[in-house]
Write a protein that binds this DNA or RNA. Structure first.
Length: 277
DNA sequence: GTACAGGCAGTAT
DNA sequence: ATACTGCCTGTA
């Protein structure tokens, strides 16, 4: 492991030669020991390596399926260390609510501000970190307190999500056991959660590896390299019904691990555009 | 001052 | 179903 892609996980940072990341209530510490990478968590998190780095995924099956596509086959060999990480579900949904209509550095700023204002301080290696706030803490915050973290109009959606979690209208752990379609339907009921945010939460935290989030970068990639799945009348901003058509096309084409293919395409498009997260 | 980042809700047709 | 608008904020 040499780097963490902050386009996927926003609250990781490299200090010295050690990577630190926030996973809900926990601070993760990733260092390079002589005998390979070492992950520790504060406080202790059961099977953190397996959980966070998705060591339970059968990568040979996954690669066998997604590399049936020639472009993805090239990208898998070009970016040999690229992986999906598993995020803590609540942190993930609030993170992608903040990701609405803005860029990655702004998302990181919003999330850092939320952790400083509503999270708990934990010292690791003498450095102060802040854990991710609980839904309860965000629910009891006022809109103005949330807005003071720089989240702007997203404050209303943050409150809506927090409220749904606190009153058990939205049970993310239960959605882990639902089908992709059922879980997506549940997420779409919440104010501020649309197709793209729902698919990101499903892929990055709820183990729905067939989810294929279509953001603007991936839309362009599909229009360019998989144009048979992309009606030329569609712009790169898709309406709900257009999104359904295109994402279904991609899920059918790439199969049950379409989300892994999406990650390679996303990284490729950003890399090609010279973006540096 | 303006353009840009770029997903969702809301309204009109 | 599509077409269009407004939206916080910070940087270029």
């Amino acid at each position: 492991v040499t780097s963490i892609n902050s386009g996927q996980v926003f609250l990781w940072e490299e200090i010295g030669s050690i990577w630190y990341g926030i996973y809900g209530n926990h601070v993760l510490r990733l260092s390079q020991a002589e005998d390979g990478p070492e992950l520790s968590s504060f406080p202790e998190l059961e099977k953190s390596e397996q959980r966070v780095f998705r060591l339970d995924d059968d990568l040979s099956s996954i690669f066998a399926e997604i590399t049936r596509d020639p472009l993805v086959r090239r990208l898998v060999s070009r970016y040999p260390g690229l992986r999906l990480l598993r995020q803590q579900p609540e942190q993930c949904i609030f993170s992608f609510v903040c990701a609405n209509n803005t860029n990655i550095s702004m998302i990181r700023r919003m999330l850092r501000n939320l952790t400083r204002k509503f999270g708990k301080a934990i010292k690791v290696d003498g450095i102060d970190f802040f854990t991710f706030p609980a839904a309860q803490d965000l629910d009891s915050a006022s809109i103005d307190e949330l807005r003071s973290c720089g989240v702007g109009y997203r404050a209303k959606a943050i409150k809506a999500v927090a409220r749904s979690i606190v009153n058990a209208d939205l049970d993310l752990d239960m959605l882990k056991r639902s089908s992709y379609f059922k879980a997506k339907e549940e997420l779409l009921r919440i104010y501020g959660i649309g197709d793209k945010i729902a698919d990101c939460v499903l892929l990055f935290s709820l183990d729905k590896l067939e989810a294929f989030p279509l953001d603007i970068w991936i839309s362009r990639a599909v229009a360019k390299y998989y144009s048979w799945a992309y009606d030329p009348r569609f712009s790169d901003k898709l309406t709900h019904s257009q999104y359904q058509v295109v994402s279904e096309g991609m899920r059918n084409y790439f199969g049950r691990y379409a989300g892994y293919a999406q990650q390679y395409l996303y990284y490729y498009m950003r890399h090609k555009a010279g973006m540096k997260w």
